[in-house]
């Protein structure tokens, strides 16, 4: 009897939350029916926003991965002085609100170092690289933390064995650790990619909301909402939901098929 009640209890949580999310989505359909159309749907603009979002999110999450893998490896396998402080600094972007990160970046580009970069390397502020940089900063903490836990779950013994058999450190890293962690890293990548797709606060602060230049999907949703154009906002939310569900479903299928790790 007690077991049964416990089970019902568990399922109640799951069902209520799923129902709540479905209600939210249903609410969108409902609002779509009663709200009036404010302006014509601009397909060209929306298509641009989708393309820009997918492109910037892919570049920023790949770059985040390139930084996160070695950093996570150090944090997982090595101890060094002030490690806790370094940890806290690296994880800061997870706690700080994106709008604050965006403002910090915008202010940085107003310092001599930032100005030097903009005039000698390339322009960032209000350009497409600004979106990529904003997304990168927002997701990098999450990327490190996710990949570190992947490494943490892999027994260091395998690497030690490889080393005793004569493998060098890079060989151990590339031939033992990375292949073992491959699937975990890929799931992490998809999650940070999805987060980058949804990034708004930092991106709009650093890149502005210029139509057909820096207008990503979240910015397009904001602009529709900000012009009292709820109809178009809902259509855009549906497109974002679709992208989100496809990615998450992909991760799920992938995780299900995951072979047991070493």
């Amino acid at each position: 009897m007690k077991n049964k009640i416990f089970k019902i209890f568990l399922w109640a949580f799951l069902i209520s939350l799923v129902l709540f999310f479905l209600t939210l989505i249903f609410g969108l359909f409902n609002q779509l029916k009663i709200t009036s159309v404010q302006k014509q749907f601009a397909f060209g603009e929306i298509f641009f926003a989708i393309k820009l979002t997918l492109l910037t999110a892919t570049v920023s999450s790949l770059s985040a991965l390139i930084f996160a893998v070695p950093i996570a490896y150090i944090l997982s396998r090595h101890n060094f002085p002030l490690k806790n402080i370094v940890n806290s600094i690296l994880y800061l972007p997870i706690v700080i609100s994106p709008i604050a990160l965006g403002a910090m970046l915008l202010i940085f580009f107003n310092t001599p170092a930032g100005k030097f970069f903009e005039s000698n390397v390339f322009r960032v502020v209000f350009e497409v690289p600004a979106i990529i940089l904003a997304q990168f900063i927002v997701i990098i903490g999450l990327a490190i933390s996710l990949i570190k836990s992947v490494f943490d779950y892999i027994n260091p013994e395998y690497e030690l064995v490889a080393r005793t058999l004569g493998a060098t450190q890079p060989q151990t890293f590339f031939r033992i650790l990375l292949p073992t962690a491959k699937k975990g890293i890929l799931s992490a990548f998809l999650l940070i990619w999805a987060r980058a797709v949804g990034e708004f606060g930092a991106a709009v602060t650093l890149a502005g909301a210029t139509t057909m230049k820096t207008e990503t999907m979240p910015i397009a949703i904001f602009l529709s909402f900000a012009s009292c154009d709820i109809y178009n906002a809902i259509i855009l939310i549906f497109i974002s939901l679709f992208i989100g569900i496809v990615v998450l479903y992909g991760i799920h299928i992938y995780a299900e098929n995951r072979k047991p790790q070493l």
């Binding site: 202010i107 107003n110 502020v125 230049k213 820096t214 900000a226």
Partner: peptide, 18 residues
């Protein structure tokens, strides 16, 4: 160079000399 998302943001980018 930029469309700001609001009136205040437009003022801010000028204050920040962007």
């Amino acid at each position: 160079a930029v469309f700001a998302k609001s009136c205040e943001d437009t003022a801010t980018i000028c204050v920040l000399k962007k």
